[in-house]
């Protein structure tokens, strides 16, 4: 059942003691501010954060937060999050049980000399060219955070005009249910 992953890069830049919290929240104005404000005032570090409507679109959103468990005990982070009235459920996905994906967009300066090698890089990483003009191309990679890290390093030998990453989203691998981090 498990489809092979397109690329498994070297070690990701993420802190060693990172945890992925998948937080189901009410889809209401200000909820992201409540979550971000909590992290700020309690001194918890966020490594990355992604938010979008969840499967029940109208009512709930899902926030995927990669937290640095060096900055505070994970238990404190989870319990303080759980106190927010708009937070409905929190699951802690251990990195080894997580299917993590991230999207990278980068605009690279091109000329006749480097265009071919850049196309090779795109091909090797399973990335795609999404825009082209006379002096630059914009490429896209949807992959593991590690793959995005690897591609980013590869692109260091080119002139990168702009590079954006979305921050990761994650689901537990099939058969590895996420642990409810806030059992009541």
């Amino acid at each position: 059942m498990n489809t092979p992953e397109p690329f498994l890069g070297a070690t990701s830049h993420t802190p060693v003691r990172h945890h992925i919290l998948s937080v189901l929240v009410e889809n209401k104005a200000g909820v992201l501010a409540r979550v971000a404000g909590l992290f700020a005032r309690r001194g918890f570090n966020i490594y990355s954060l992604a938010v979008a409507p969840a499967e029940t679109k109208a009512r709930f959103s899902r926030i995927t937060i990669v937290v640095d468990a060096e900055s505070a005990p994970l238990e404190q982070i989870v319990e303080q999050l759980d106190k927010l009235v708009n937070v409905v459920a929190i699951s802690d996905i251990a990195p080894k049980d997580a299917l993590e994906r991230e999207l990278l967009l980068a605009t690279i300066k091109t000329d006749v000399d480097n265009r071919t090698s850049l196309l090779d890089v795109v091909g090797n990483y399973g990335a795609a060219i999404v825009d082209v003009d006379a002096g630059s191309v914009t490429l896209m990679l949807a992959g593991t955070p590690a793959a995005c890290d690897e591609l980013e390093r590869e692109l260091e030998s080119y002139t990168t005009l702009e590079l954006h990453r979305t921050g990761r989203v994650a689901l537990p691998r099939l058969g590895k249910a996420a642990v409810a981090a806030d059992p009541d």
Partner: peptide
């Protein structure tokens, strides 16, 4: 005021 009191209320509503 909901923004200001976010961190010092148990909850707030606009």
């Amino acid at each position: 005021i909901t923004g200001i009191t976010m961190g010092i209320t148990k909850h707030n509503f606009l």
